[in-house]
Amino acid sequence: MSFSDILLLMFTAILVENFIFAKFYGCCPFLGVSDKPDTALGMGMAVTFVMTLSGAATYLVYHLLLVPFHLEYLKTVAFILVIAALVQFIEMFLKRFVPALYASLGIYLPLITTNCAVLSAALLAVQNDLNFIGSVAFGFSSALGFTLAIVVFAGVRARLQFAEPPRAFRGFPITLIAAGLLAMAFAGFSGVRL
């Protein structure tokens, strides 16, 4: 993969095929932890951290362990275990060595294991036959797309608190509709084919 290939891959992953607004990976944390911009940013940073590392780890596990033993069909089980272990490891590492970062990311870390964005980035990287650099870049830029979406949306939701929708729409429904409007804006990128 040349440098420009990687740039294109990253641009596509962040805007054109945004994980939330085009692919729906990671909608649970997107809808759950986006009520304040700073918590949203914390979640986005934690996800970026994990997804970049899991891009590297799952690539190594797949190509050094599963492929040589012809166990490709076990990739879902293997990847989710790698991700769970990685999250646990990062949590312990941060707690021990970077307590300040742990204090700000700590509560979001355990949630990431069941964030489908992480698993789908790993599976997609295998499906699209990306090499090591590509796999890491894909994990990193997909996570940036996720962060962009969740932070922008948290800004929208901060405004939403002062709105008065009809009673039945209060809470979750109006949040979904706001997300729909944002998805329309992101649909504008879908014409961009690189």
Binding site: P166, A168, R170, A179, A183, A187
Partner: peptide
Amino acid sequence: MPAGAFLTLGFVIAGVQK
């Protein structure tokens, strides 16, 4: 399209809440 998914689910859940 993706936007329609969010909108439809929003209206369906609003109906349920009603």
